[in-house]
Structure formats: structure tokens, C-alpha cells
Amino acid sequence: MDYLYEGFLNAFVLLFNGHDETWDAIYTTVRVSSLSIFFSLLVGLPLGFFMGHYDFPGKRHMRAVVDTLLALPTVVVGLLVYAFITRRGPFGDMGLLFNVSGIVVGQFILVIPIVISLTATGIESLDERLRPTLITLGAGKNRIIVSTLYEARFAIMTAAVTAYGRAISEVGVSMMVGGNIKWHTRTITTAITLETGKGEFAMGIALGIVLLLLGFTVNWLLIFFRKRA
């Protein structure tokens, strides 16, 4: 058990002494996840709003597909993205493989169903009196959309936070598409995998602590927003 005790001690040393390699993995994780969440919100929010607000033929089937994609395995996404961005793939010339942009694309695909589904659920669960209230107060089409999104703000934040939690904790996409390249595409999860394999528990534990803290923060925010919603 000494190695565990020693691992914890060294982990704190690495974190508080500003060990470059450890902090680079943390920085990469936050950067990649934030970018993927930004783009997934940009695309997912309007789609989620559309799906929750309007009725259209095939809505139920589309919803079923999106809900199924919530449980998409990260390695499957990694495999698919890899197949498309590898040199032989249709997007091979874009140089996304073993690059931060490639991980962003993979995480975007991984989390966008979460953003769409939770946003749609949030919009659907709004009080049915909202729309007639806005109309009879004189709101036009654009104002109705903006006000509806604002009324669903806590549900939307829940969607964003849930998606962020999924992005920072995934390992399949980052490993397969990013390649776990030191100083470049190494994220917390891929670093933990590697260091544990090498028997270097200190860095693994240090990164694990950071991941847990991030996860705790995300969940705390989730509880907060759910309570407000």
C-alpha cells in the first residue's frame, strides 16, 4: 500500500509545484472540452429548440435517434472520426488527425446529442401558458424565440454542464483521434491511462484528483441549475 500513499504525496507535489507536463495535460483538457462545448452549443441549441418547440412529421423518430445517441460509446465515435480524418479518409487533407482540432470534432459529435436532447426536453417542459402569454404581451416571432430560450435558461445550462462533464471525462476519442502526444494532444484521461500503464501512479493520481475536482464542480453546478429550474 506504500506505493499508493507515496503516489498521493507525489501527486500533490506535482500539482502545487506546477509540474509542466501535468499542467499541460490539464490545460489541453480544458481547452479541448471548452471548444467542443462551444461549438456543440452553437449548433445544438437551435436544433434542440426546434425539436422542443415545433411539431413536425417524424419528430418522434428524430427524437428517438437523438436519445439513442446519448449513450454513444466514445471509442465508436473515435473510430468513426478516425476513419474520416485519417490520411486515406475523405477529410484526410485537413490535417485533423493527432491534432487538438480532431479531438474537438470527436467530442463535438459525442456531446451534441446531449445538448440537443436536454435542450429539447427543457423547452418541452416549459409551462404551456408561456407562448400565449408572450403573444398577448405583444412579442413578435424573434422575441418569442429569445424569451422562450431565456425561460429555459436553467435547463439549457444543465445541458451545457452535462455535456461538459461528458467531454472532460471521455478517453476514447482523445486517445484514438488525438494520439496522446505529449505537449500536444495529451489530455487528463489519456495521460492517466498512459501513466498508470507505466506504473507512474503519482502523475496519474494528480490528474485523477484534478479530474475528480472538475467532475465535482460540474456536478455541483448541475445540482444548482436543476434546483433553479
Binding site: 409551462d127 401558458r129 408561456l130 402569454t133 398577448t136 404581451l137 425561460e151 435558461r153
Partner: peptide, 11 residues
């Protein structure tokens, strides 16, 4: 303008 049954306020 109309006030619906059971007051509904925006959040």
C-alpha cells in the same frame, strides 16, 4: 392583451 386563467409570470 389577455390575462389567462391562473397567473403565469416569466421567470
Amino acid at each position: 392583451t389577455m390575462l389567462q386563467q391562473d397567473a403565469f409570470l416569466l421567470k
